[in-house]
Design a protein around this nucleic acid. Sequence first.
DNA 1: TTGTAAACTTACGGCTGTTATCCTAGCCGC
DNA 2: GCGGCTAGGATAACAGCCGTAAGTTTACAA
Lengths: 216, 216
Amino acid sequence: MSERPTRKRNPRGQGERLRRELIDAATALLAELGDAERLSIRAVARRAGVTPPSIYRHFEDKQSLVSAVLEERFGEFNRFLAEAEGAASDPYDALSRRCHAYLEFAREHPGHYRVLFGTKAPMPSGRHPGRRAAPSDERPRAGAVSFFALVDAIQRCLDAGAGSDRDSSFLAVELWTLLHGVVDLRLTYPDLPWPAAEEITDAVRTQAGLGKPNLE
Amino acid sequence: MSERPTRKRNPRGQGERLRRELIDAATALLAELGDAERLSIRAVARRAGVTPPSIYRHFEDKQSLVSAVLEERFGEFNRFLAEAEGAASDPYDALSRRCHAYLEFAREHPGHYRVLFGTKAPMPSGRHPGRRAAPSDERPRAGAVSFFALVDAIQRCLDAGAGSDRDSSFLAVELWTLLHGVVDLRLTYPDLPWPAAEEITDAVRTQAGLGKPNLE
DNA sequence: TTGTAAACTTACGGCTGTTATCCTAGCCGC
DNA sequence: GCGGCTAGGATAACAGCCGTAAGTTTACAA
């Protein structure tokens, strides 16, 4: 019952292996929980078949572990979108694929999407007394990367002659908020009569003048 | 230091007064925390100047207290939007006002907005052993009310002659996801170069054919 | 005076992040 | 062969939080 750790200890030079297993365990748990603050050091240790203090051999504190996982997840997300875009023939198709990939990632990994982009409640000002200087939230920086990649994709459409009276930055905000809104509200209200997510974003994208101008 | 309760006890027939004070304290705390699950019975009791078990005279359990607060907040939200709409002269103006009121509520009460519409992480399947049948989440029902009010507002525009090839339900999803996306991403990434929230939603609304047709 | 509403005290069992200390398997030089 | 060193863990414990059940006190109304 007490989940005693039954792992074999790693050999001499291979101490880094536990680090990977901890990140993998934390990744799996975050996919289930959908919230980085709910993740507990002890749950990660249980899943990895290890005692909680062992984690501190590989990560300074809980925040470090979470950050390591978030960094990998953000990398995976941005890579997934970039690869989807790479298979396109023209800028309009590329933008379309990027948007669809965004929705696909959220559909396939809802827990991770929530961890990456979900609303995070503000810190109650020092939950643990002996805290270091606020670790703050690292998601804004990483998430902004996704945003500027979207700006670039839109700019390439404008450069290719897309007709819009707005600049790429504004259009990127418009598209991103829509993508995020679709994903987030669907997760919260799965029982509403939702149309296909792609249908919504495609509609707005073409209305904004970013569709392929094949009929003009 | 120990925050001993210094309240005067309520007189005989006035036991309901504490109930109100508890709801008010919980409301204020939720505005700060932005997350119903972070709210603790003990924190509510501290703020109300009362010991934790006293709460159980007025609420069956924590979930009942939270539900009472959510119900009030949802009512306030829907009333605020309906009143804003009521001051309009035509359906287009009404829809515009409703959207602007949505954004205004979120701007003025970000914590409450998060509690009402923010992404909620899934329950880890029975956090407390001796639990009653899952209380589930009451937000979907209440939130759906807001959605259908939006559908109605859009339908009135279509009835007034708004030109759109989509039905009101689809357009409502389009608008709602955009409104929510704008609000939610702004809360998560406050440092990005955001245009005015109204500018984004107005752009999409008019692109969708729901603007006032004064130039046709 | 007495019943009882309204609140209190105490306590249980659980969770959490983190530290200080200890154990042990295996490689090192000798 | 063998003592020592150290990497890679495990134990035990601290201090804090949590929801809530059981029993007790206080003060007002009848």
